[in-house]
């Protein structure tokens, strides 16, 4: 039984044309960078892994996570965390409530509040529980989104152009933080990006899609 995220003979087609073809294992703490021009189907692969493939795509093959076939599970049972290029913090919830939304259920109210505080401290945002997420800076939002995802204790991390909206300095900072946290938790990571800098910083294998 292999730990990590495994794509077994995954093929995604659209209208009979093959977009993505992969057979690979991303071990704990490893990063696979997927590069390609827009429209090449690189985000489609993440949609397949999270279980949100649009109906006009056809996919074959299996996705295994830590020794379990998750291909048939609904999204919320797959334990694959994802970050998009927008932070997608829920605008109606405070920063703390956003984190509590992510935190796996269980524990007393006090324990849960402490976990949330701890998470905020981990990204140097102590005392931000009651803030309106819309009033945070771009870097702060990115950090909250990361912690919200990690509190759900995912078994893999998916990054869908997660850094492309951030400007250069911030981008490096947030990227380093994300990889550091993922490594600390031994998570396999798939990063979709169109920026070679991202892929270099990740240091793992690079897979090119749609390069003909």
């Amino acid at each position: 039984m292999a730990r990590g995220l495994e794509l077994r003979d995954v093929v995604i087609r659209k209208g009979g044309q093959v977009l993505v073809q992969m057979n690979t294992l991303i071990g704990p703490g490893e990063v696979l960078s997927i590069m390609g021009p827009s429209g090449s189907g690189k985000s489609t692969l993440l949609a397949l892994i999270t279980g949100n493939l649009a109906p006009d795509f056809q996919a074959t093959g299996e996705v295994w996570l830590d020794g379990n076939d998750i291909s048939k599970l609904p999204t919320h049972q797959r334990r694959a965390g994802i970050l998009f290029q927008d932070d997608l913090l829920f605008p109606h919830l405070s920063v703390g409530a956003n984190l509590a939304f992510g935190l796996r259920s269980g524990g007393t109210t006090g324990e849960r509040a402490e976990r949330v505080n701890e998470a905020l401290r981990e990204v140097e945002l102590d005392g931000y529980q009651d803030r309106d997420p819309a009033r945070l800076s771009g870097g702060q939002k990115a950090r909250v989104a990361l912690m919200r995802m990690l509190l759900a204790e995912p078994c893999a991390l998916l990054l869908d152009e997660a850094f492309s909206r951030l400007d250069a300095d911030l981008r490096t900072q947030v990227r380093d933080l994300v990889f550091e946290r993922a490594l600390a938790r031994d998570l396999p990571v798939i990063m979709v990006t169109h920026d070679i800098e991202d892929a270099r910083a990740a240091g793992g294998k690079i897979y090119n899609i749609g390069a003909r």
Partner: peptide
């Protein structure tokens, strides 16, 4: 934005 839904589901929400 349905990515809000994907985001929440990826956090384990039914």
């Amino acid at each position: 934005d349905t990515r809000n839904g994907v985001s929440a589901a990826a956090l384990g929400a039914s």
